[in-house]
Simulated assay, not measured.
Amino acid sequence: MATVVVATGNPGKLTELKDYLQTLDWTLALKPQDLEVEETGKTFIENARMKASEVAIATQNWAIADDSGLSVMALGGAPGVYSARYGHSDADRINRVLRELGDEPDRRAEFVCAIALARPDGTIALETEGRCPGAILTAGQGVGGFGYDPIFYVRSQGKTFAEMTPTEKEKYSHRGIAFEQLLPALKQLEMDI
């Protein structure tokens, strides 16, 4: 069974990735706590590539990384790669987006998730981006999820991420879409790892 290092120190993200990758014969491990990768990319895919590559080289193992966030059209794509740093808490980040949008009629937005898989030498073997289109509400709805979930309305489902069950969110989210796109290629690559 091959070991693939997940380029995160977050045990919650490791558990989430195990769920998405459960059909693969891999052992997933967290990156070393003292290994920090500065996210300096201008796009989600640049950050995912950077994290996967640096962790792969440092550990001499295959490594998988993701980078994701919210992109609001009327805000020029903000918060974008700064989604997690757009405030000190989820409430701060939500309030900032709502304040900056004001009464703007164009509420279109999308969640984006970029995933990259790097070989032990740091070269990128696979990558993809999943996108979930939606709109920003004027106030939060629902109590589930985290981050921007209460204000992100998925038109195709008629509810926010915060109103979805975990199973629904996994299916319709940007991360679910990205892993669905990536899984067939990962299964083919599984023998090389």
Rank of each mutant, 00 (worst) to 15 (best):
L98V: 00
G142K: 03
P166D: 07
A2N: 12
V6I: 15
I57K: 15
V143T: 15
T43K: 04
A114H: 09
W26C: 10
F44D: 11
I136D: 01
C113P: 08
M191P: 05
A78M: 08
R107Y: 03
K169M: 02
A185R: 15
V6M: 10
E180L: 09
L21P: 13
G80F: 00
A2R: 14
G130Q: 10
G134T: 05
R119H: 15
D25A: 15
M50C: 12
V81Q: 02
R49T: 05
S83H: 00
N61G: 02
P184K: 12
R108D: 13
N47Y: 03
P105Y: 02
H174S: 07
T3D: 12
D92E: 12
E46V: 03
I124K: 11
G41E: 09
Y153W: 14
N10K: 07
K31C: 13
A48M: 09
A74W: 00
G134N: 09
A162K: 05
L14N: 12
T128A: 06
Q188D: 13
A2T: 12
I177T: 14
Y82K: 13
K187D: 06
T15Q: 15
D92T: 00
K18Y: 05
E110T: 10
L70T: 06
Y172Q: 03
Y20S: 11
I193N: 09
A178C: 07
I57V: 15
L17Q: 12
